[in-house]
């Protein structure tokens, strides 16, 4: 089919709807957020239109710097663990019989239907001393007495990974299902053990999917603000928690917006960087 460039205004009609939706639900809210971030806070009130960089200036302190670094580190860690578990899991899942695959996928979708609050409370119970998993280990004779594992960094990590894992698998699943199984077999007949073949053929062949998945999980984890509160100590609070504090409890919308803009910028920069790096590696493909 030959495509001719659009000539009349109506030729642009097919993209009008997606463009309008994108504008309405992404560009406009983001623009409002950017605008509010330079507004002047009215203590004891709300905010009034102005142009001030004071909100950004307040953010540029070692304290918020540390929180930002921790947030990025936590998100990257969650993303790495999700891929580390999710990739072999999804690969083995796609090797199962169709019926079994469906059962697994439905179970994972079930996790998606749980709210962040339920996940947080469930894990805080599971990791507690009085009613948690450690009691089971004591009963099994693996531990001497029950222990409390929450709040802690491990608990935050566990909760976030649990929540992000279904997304990981659902993003990886279509690509792994489409993966030609003979790639792996070819690698084996050419002299690679199954694990080696998985590492040097399957993973590199899926590079783009893996990168996309890690970015999705990274962004997802970066936005988490409930789980770090429920499962973590204050030093495990992410920037998103502080944004929520400012927006809801301090009514400081301009500062909350400035932090949010900074968070978006920082994550976009990281995403751009990783795409650029992988793009150079995959150049000529």
């Amino acid at each position: 089919m030959r495509r001719s460039p659009p000539q009349k205004l109506t030729d642009y009609l097919p993209i009008a709807f997606p463009a309008a939706m994108l504008g309405l639900f992404f560009v406009v809210p983001f623009a409002i957020m950017v605008a509010v971030s330079v507004f002047k806070r009215v203590p004891g009130g709300f905010y009034e239109p102005a142009f001030t960089l004071a909100n950004y200036a307040r953010f540029l302190s070692p304290f918020f710097g540390e929180v930002l670094v921790f947030s990025l580190f936590l998100a990257a860690f969650v993303s790495a663990i999700c891929l580390l578990i999710g990739v072999p899991f999804t690969y083995l899942l796609t090797r199962l019989r169709r019926g079994n695959q469906v059962v697994w996928l439905i179970a994972l979708l079930g996790v998606l239907s749980l709210s962040e609050v339920i996940i947080g409370f469930s894990w805080s119970t599971l990791l507690s001393r009085t009613a948690g998993l450690s009691n089971l280990f004591v009963w099994l004779g693996l531990m001497d007495r029950p222990q409390s594992w929450t709040p802690s960094f491990g608990a935050v990590l566990t909760g976030l990974v649990y929540q992000a894992f279904p997304y990981t698998v659902l993003v990886l699943y279509p690509a792994f299902s489409r993966l030609d199984p003979s790639l792996m077999e070819a690698a084996r007949t050419l002299g690679s053990s199954p694990i080696r073949a998985f590492l040097n053929v399957v993973l590199p062949a899926m590079r783009t999917t893996l990168l996309a998945t890690s970015i999705i999980v990274f962004i997802f984890a970066l936005g988490a603000y409930l789980l770090p509160q429920i499962l973590g100590r204050p030093q495990h609070w992410t920037l998103s928690v502080l944004v929520t504090d400012q927006a809801i409890y301090q009514s400081n919308m301009p500062f909350a917006a400035a932090m949010a803009v900074f968070l978006v910028m920082a994550s976009l920069a990281l995403v751009g960087l990783s795409v650029a790096i992988s793009g150079r590696k995959g150049a000529g493909q």
């Binding site: 030609d180 003979s182 790639l183 077999e185 070819a186 690698a187 084996r188 007949t189 050419l190 002299g191 690679s192 053990s193 199954p194 080696r196 073949a197 053929v201 590199p204 062949a205 590079r207 995959g282 000529g284 493909q285």
Partner: peptide, 29 residues
């Protein structure tokens, strides 16, 4: 196991590795 049998196999789908160049594909084994 397959990887120790020292044989060459051509698959119906050819199974050339998409992330490797022609030379790298041939040099893989």
């Amino acid at each position: 196991p397959a990887h120790l049998r020292n044989l060459g196999m051509v698959f119906q789908s050819l199974a050339l590795f998409p992330h490797l160049s022609v030379g790298e594909n041939i040099a893989y084994p």
